[in-house]
Amino acid sequence: MKIALQNVEMAYDGKTVFSNLTYTFCLTGITALMGESGCGKTTLLRLLCGLETPKSGKIVGMPQKYTFMFQENRLLPWATALENVSAVCNVPTARQWLAAVGLSQEANSLPSALSGGMQRRVAFARALAHQSDVLLLDEPFKGLDVELRSKMIQLLRQQAKLRPILFVTHDPCEAQECDAEVLDFQQIARNA
């Protein structure tokens, strides 16, 4: 899958995040997007999803059906873990994904009754349960311990066989464990 950025400029409140950005992402398997905080990784994912509009330039090749896992969990606070996941798929599939992330027992719990790590896994399950052509994940393993992170990475690697994945991380070990192609976004933006 090729997604091309053509002379993209992005600014928030007059402050330029990146400008004249021309780059083609060739997404196969898992791609890890790295770079210092504030260099525009999250902004890039938001642009790809159409949640932000570039000041100028255009993005070509982004599929219509995508999945975006936000940096925050963004779970519906009044809905149980199962309801949160089944919001994007049918109930049996949602149950399967909750089981896959080790939260079968918590299916009927509200997010407020779950720990931060559990909430993150519900958000992760929701992202994986959502049918799409590409997975964009913003720091998907944030707040997970090493053991859980390894389990989630296994799930991600299985998913990579079905659709390309682009994820933001600050941890080179995560990228390595995912067997991901690493892109230094800071470098890409600077070259632009």
């Binding site: 999803c49 995508y66 999945t67 936000f70 925050e72 963004r74 929701r126």
Partner: peptide, 9 residues
């Protein structure tokens, strides 16, 4: 943020 999540999904 929830509305944005709904849009993304």
């Amino acid at each position: 943020r929830l509305l944005e999540m709904a849009k993304a999904y």
